[in-house]
Design a protein around this nucleic acid. Structure first.
Lengths: 268, 268
DNA sequence: GCAAATTTGTTCGTATGTATT
DNA sequence: CAATACATACGAACAAATTTG
């Protein structure tokens, strides 16, 4: 029993795309033309197309046509701490600094600061009561004007009343919040834990990142930072569309030249 | 202008699923029943269903019906090194040991050993010529008899001829390959780098993990281990279906009680 | 700026095939 | 074998987005 017709057609088109016969950005024949070429009904052509859309090979645009997808150049975020800077990967302004070194234009929005009630997960990580007041600092990140990630950090509201008043200012904290908390509260970061999972995008993420309805996952990391006494003092949630982001983790001693590339150049 | 009909229906069903009115494993009304309920044609019902299938909310089975998907209990792999054991997360028999402590049944297949020509990526990571001979050690992992991950390690063939002959035996190396290479070749692991990306599954992965045609991504990590002189001596490729695996990364000092849980219990 | 043509999106109806009960 | 339920495929009509003249 052969594959159904729409699969055969999808496979045929897939081969043409992967062989380069239909390069990225190329327009596919219209549905009408494909109906003739394969001598099937329009619905069957559309079934084949839908398969390729969910596989992230093509993109259909009403009124325009169907095009081979152009892959993003992946941006690489290092999630391990750089022993020299003491920064956890991709945090704060280290993001912009690292990228601009490579001739790319990176941009981080000013933090959007809010005082919120802690959600279940955030409260749990910070060992607060659910609904306790927390400061939320949210930033969006762009590379070459394309949205690449979003990040939200949560701190107990006590920190602000206790002296770290800059936390509720909608501006970057020069030197980073880690050293700011050390200066103002004497709170020192002993380590952190990242929990990484992959999930489907929310509607907000779909629109902000300009993702297709289906096919692109979101990499989500929950980072909980602990002070010297083992008490959690910050939770940072980062979301990365999987079609344009890779993660790197360095453990122990890794040669400097491979330690922190921002771009994976080779296609694997 | 309102959403198209099939979206409204999909949203309605999604709400019923997420609210628990249609719990996991519950059977949805048949297409015929839904046609009546919503007073639309069968194709419109099927469009709505298809949306929910790609969102990994339901599973359609020919001849049986349509069911709410049951989520896997995620297994958590720690990718940072545990300072006490010196093990990189989830490597070797540490996998089985860690899991069995939690009353779960974990199993790793005996390694499937082959001598191969290095692929482009592996050759590049090991700084070998493309096509150089490498030993490949491949293992599959199960938790409660369900497939959870696959792992393949590559070593230069020189290691075997140089004395580490157990590398080509299709058996677990007790104590782990790290300490075995230290004993036989005096090669000490100084550190490693993980590169994590998320991609669509290959056909092999689709069948082995029993994944649906669409919707589940694969988390792939390339781990390159370096010796004290900064020379790469091993590449390990791990693949994890994203619907049943999370990753954890510990940096610096993290409280022991949160350091290495194998299961995330709370639903977020 | 508008109208026509082009292209994909939505929805209906119908028929037949295949898997499961 | 019959009934049930989802899968594939055809044809048709109109809508919505975009480009073109």
């Amino acid at each position: 029993m052969p594959d159904p017709r729409y699969r055969q057609i999808a496979d045929d088109l897939r081969r043409k795309i992967e062989s380069g016969q239909l390069p990225p950005r190329a327009q596919l024949p219209t549905e009408g033309e494909l109906m003739e070429q394969y001598d099937v009904s329009r619905n069957t052509i559309r079934d084949a197309m839908r398969l390729l859309v969910t596989r992230r090979l093509i993109d259909t645009q009403p009124g325009r046509g169907t095009f081979v997808i152009e892959r993003y150049k992946p941006f690489v975020t290092t999630i391990s701490e750089d022993p020299e800077t003491g920064f956890g990967g991709g945090e704060g302004d280290s993001f912009v600094r690292e990228v601009s070194q490579l001739g790319r234009e990176a941009r981080t929005t000013d933090p959007q600061v809010e005082v919120q009630k802690a959600s279940g997960r955030v409260a749990h990580e910070l060992r607060l009561d659910k609904g306790a007041q927390v400061v939320s600092r949210h930033q969006k990140r762009f590379v070459d004007e394309a949205p690449y990630s979003m990040q939200t950090s949560f701190y107990p509201m006590d920190f602000v009343t206790g002296g770290a008043t800059d936390l509720i200012l909608a501006a970057n904290i020069t030197g980073g919040t880690v050293s700011y908390l050390k200066e103002t509260l004497g709170m020192e970061q002993a380590g952190y834990q990242d929990r990484v999972r992959v999930r489907t995008p929310t509607d907000d993420e779909l629109t902000f990142f300009g993702l297709p309805e289906t096919g692109v996952s979101i990499i989500e990391t929950y980072r909980t930072a602990y002070d010297l006494s083992g008490r959690p003092f910050r939770v940072t949630v980062s979301v990365y569309p999987a079609d344009r982001n890779h993660l790197i983790n360095n453990v122990g001693k890794v040669p400097g030249d491979v330690k922190a590339p921002q771009w994976i150049t080779e296609e694997i």
